[in-house]
């Protein structure tokens, strides 16, 4: 489902003496449907960078990043947008939404984008919010005012609303209590069971042990750090 080969990236800081900072060299990995792969490595090794490149958020300088049938490294913006709408979900660590939009609508939006009708989308959103223990009285409020943990759960609900064939999870269990952590892990297991290919970053080792089939140490792709 996700196939990465020969991917390199460096940042060029034009305004700081055109400093070139290589961050990734010859990265390669494959994730099959139904598989969950954890990215591991020391902080700064490039776990998030690789994940962002898969999502098309960072530009790869070389190589191929094929998700489904789209090479993210080469695709036009609208092809990446279609991929993000239909195929590739992403749960980031931070919630970024338009102010003033109700939580329930924030969660339902990915479903509306793929053409699910309003009532069905809301029903699915309600189900997820309930499962993630967001009190019903908050559903009609904008999540911008929520606590960190609540925002994270809204973010997860939004990421899992549509049954994406491929999912990127950046610290999905961070800042969650035991109950909600359990809910998120079961959501991940459900997604695997329906055949989603998942790439995740988990600092929570127990969680990693439980849901991940393999680990990939990105240190191997870090220029100057590979042994």
């Amino acid at each position: 489902m996700i196939e990465i080969s020969g991917v390199s990236k460096s940042f060029v800081l034009h305004n700081q003496g055109s400093a070139v900072i290589p961050v990734m060299q010859d990265a390669a990995m494959t994730v099959a449907p139904g598989e969950c792969v954890a990215l591991v490595g020391a902080s700064g090794a490039g776990k998030s960078t690789l994940m962002r490149m898969i999502y098309g958020n960072y530009l790869a300088n070389a190589g191929q990043i094929v998700v489904g049938d789209v090479d993210v490294a080469q695709a036009e913006p609208r092809e990446i947008l279609a991929l993000r709408r239909e195929v590739l979900g992403y749960v980031s660590q931070f919630l970024r939404v338009v102010p003033r939009v109700a939580t329930i609508d924030v969660v339902a939006e990915p479903l509306l984008q793929v053409g699910v009708d309003g009532a069905a989308a809301r029903a699915r959103a309600e189900e997820l919010l309930r499962r993630l223990n967001i009190p019903e009285r908050l559903w009609s409020l904008s999540p911008t005012t929520f606590s960190g943990g609540e925002q994270q759960r809204v973010n997860i609900a939004r990421g899992f609303a549509h049954s994406f064939p491929a999912l990127l999870l950046d610290e999905p269990t961070a800042s969650l209590d035991a109950t909600n952590r359990e809910v998120v892990l079961s959501l991940i297991e459900d997604a695997k069971a329906r055949g989603a290919a998942i790439v995740g970053i988990f600092h929570d080792e127990a969680a990693r042990e439980r849901v991940c089939d393999r680990e990939i140490d990105v240190t191997g792709f870090t220029p100057g750090m590979a042994a």
Partner: peptide, 18 residues
């Protein structure tokens, strides 16, 4: 030019970075 979040999060041109 590019995808909005890509241009904003990983700007390539010096001017965009600025």
């Amino acid at each position: 030019t590019g995808l909005t979040d890509q241009v904003l999060d990983d700007p390539q041109h010096g001017y965009t970075q600025l």
